[in-house]
Nucleic acid binder design. Structure first.
Lengths: 189, 189
DNA sequence: ACAGTGATGTCAGTTACTGACATAGAAAGT
DNA sequence: ACTTTCTATGTCAGTAACTGACATCACTGT
């Protein structure tokens, strides 16, 4: 028998998500989260940098995944295809827990501060992918544009995927492809 | 002679921008900003919702501009061209004060919290444009994708414009066009 | 048995932000 | 001219996010 209940971080995450949903993000105090998890406020801040980060921890993993995806592309691949590969790797890394993701996205959708954090995480991914492409020697100024657009496509596909869970059987990689094709079509005008 | 020095909001903006640059955003307290502006902390929060917003006030104006730009497009215009018109209207509304914009962007570039806010403002613009397009009866699911991509293009063009000030003579609308063409080219692969 | 380690608790402090009320000129009404 | 009302600001007290310093105590290895 260990001194403390296991998985403190997980308990804090779950307590936070539930409370944010029940009362809203602003109406929830960190002290309440900690109490529900059987811990103290101070311990919360040892695991998470701030009150928002509790919903976004895990995203750090995405950085490596994306970097690896870029690195493992053949040298002959076009910048466009490399970006697509990165997006597909991200899509594949999304945990397949629809209830959890839906709850999380619903909470985020209701609070601008959480949206800010989500947008920052995406921007951070843009930076990582851009850097990875440049280190591959891909010539400069278009890269950022391409990556920025790629993430926009990913965001749209991800939103659709979460929104249509239960009903539609389309997978996230499928939706990604569809969104890319849509974009090409609509840019033709 | 009036009771108070005029332009309290402007003084607060200037004091904040200067202090953020001198000491960094986190190292600056609102009390310090207010003191430099000859006011009190409480008054700061009457003008700005929070410590970050002082750098982003003004953006509210952009919403109307963009909505008007969309509304004034001919009914025959394609969704793509409407979005381009909205982006060009945004570009035209940027105040032509390079020193100010550079200082502001430099401050934002150094602080994640400020980046979050900037990203949220952009997301808000995406929402406004998307809504304006949908109210024009433009069919649904592709719109968000188109607008999201459009803003990504705008961001890249704007960054380039700020970065190349002094040296290059390219205007923001020009850079916008160039970025759009680049995107079309690179998506062809 | 005992010293060290690591996850947690306790506590005090700073600062962002808010609500309630006070004040003093300026403007407006009579 | 006198009074009332309006408005931008100040004062003050309070909440809650976040941080640093130090304490605790079961477990671990020697």
């Amino acid at each position: 028998m260990s001194r403390w209940e296991p998985n403190a971080r997980g308990r804090l995450e779950q307590a936070a998500l539930d409370l944010y949903q029940e009362r809203g993000f602003e109406q929830t105090t960190v002290a309440e989260i900690a109490e529900r998890a059987g811990l103290t406020e101070r311990t919360f801040f040892r695991y998470f940098a701030d009150k928002r980060e509790v919903l976004f921890w895990g995203q750090g993993r995405l950085h490596e995944i994306v970097v690896n995806a870029v690195a493992s592309q053949p040298v002959t691949a076009s910048p466009f295809n490399i970006v697509v590969a990165a997006l597909e790797a991200m899509a594949a890394a999304v945990p397949d827990r629809p209830e959890f993701l839906q709850q999380r996205q619903a909470v985020i959708a209701q609070n601008p501060e959480l949206q800010e954090r989500e947008l920052l995480k995406m921007a951070s991914l843009i930076g990582v992918i851009t850097e990875a492409l440049q280190q591959r020697g891909i010539p400069g100024p278009t890269v950022r544009l391409l990556v920025e657009t790629g993430i926009a496509v990913y965001r749209v596909a991800f939103t659709r995927w979460v929104d249509e869970k239960e009903k539609g059987p389309r997978t996230l990689p499928q939706l990604l492809r569809e969104a890319l094709d849509e974009l090409k079509a609509v840019l033709a005008f």
